[in-house]
Design a protein around this nucleic acid. Sequence first.
DNA 1: TCAGAAACGTCAACATGGCTGACATAAATT
DNA 2: AATTTATGTCAGCCATGTTGACGTTTCTGA
Lengths: 184, 184
Amino acid sequence: MADINFSTRPDSPDSRAPEPQAAAADERPLRWDIIELLFFAYRDFVGDADHELEAFGFGRAHHRVMHFVTRYPGLKVADLLEVLRITKQSLGRVLKQLLDEGYIVQKTGNNDRRQRLLFATAKGEALVAKLAGLQTRRIDRALEQVGPAGADKVRQFLRAMIDRDDPDKVLEAIFKTPVTTAKE
Amino acid sequence: MADINFSTRPDSPDSRAPEPQAAAADERPLRWDIIELLFFAYRDFVGDADHELEAFGFGRAHHRVMHFVTRYPGLKVADLLEVLRITKQSLGRVLKQLLDEGYIVQKTGNNDRRQRLLFATAKGEALVAKLAGLQTRRIDRALEQVGPAGADKVRQFLRAMIDRDDPDKVLEAIFKTPVTTAKE
DNA sequence: TCAGAAACGTCAACATGGCTGACATAAATT
DNA sequence: AATTTATGTCAGCCATGTTGACGTTTCTGA
């Protein structure tokens, strides 16, 4: 307890900037509020799943793989690498576990027999649905605060935050659907 | 190239769920769209900073510490631990580097001499401002898509996504300020 | 006043999940 | 037949999280 010396900058530790650091040219106000809100919102958002994943002995890496394989059945290994932006070796590690434990199955490509198409098993789908349920509860609560029109604004904002140059297949699919689901 | 066997579930790999998995009781629609938008938006959002940090030999952990120390001068070590939700040992590692390289300075607490209050140096503030500038550019672009009213909806949404039980000091400060900055 | 608690630092060891480089195999392509 | 592509895998490194233990300084309460 005692004192809350918080944000009460004491007798300046003398090594701090006396002047605004040369370039006063780029005087755009910084979006401190949104930056911090994104940090905390995302932290708690993924925290929902993290907690549950421990019970399965999985981590975030497993969740990401399971999520996209479940949502986009038939995803190739190469597709997954693009979406997750990790290396083959990193993916291999978690993918192997998910295959071994029966959360995902592979199927040789029909047209190109080199490909391994990935599919979630019932067990895998159940896990993803459970985790998505937790996150949905949080999202629903938050969307209630802004109403149906606000929800579309949120979707528009999030879409605009994403890089559009050279999108992977999953992103293409996401941007193909219109933003207004508008049936709330 | 060749075929895009994407999302065209082939002759079902037979281990997939035939039925919707018992409990049809919790039939809330899942927010797949928001879940995925958050994933991609946050990935690209932090990606802005990640790239720049490499040039300094720092990682995300350093960025997080620098950010909160800069934004909330005089933060105690214990405060930082609460905000970042990491252990003393993890924090110690990156904090030591930032102190050694002159991005942060410590000052013994006035009231309680056990405390080490943290302050960013000019060098540290410059780094944080540079990174925030990159992220601000992305945020500005995205907020333009939704207008001033939409921006407030976005802020409301993000705030509502954050856990409010037992908030740390930084969160208290954030939630103390009203949502409507409304001067865009 | 003095015992205990609090704030902080640190050592050692370990886990997860990124990374690079190298190499192998099967299948497609040219 | 030679090459390229899609995938898998081995070995090792790095960043950043973890637990457990222990030491010092300083504050606090009986």
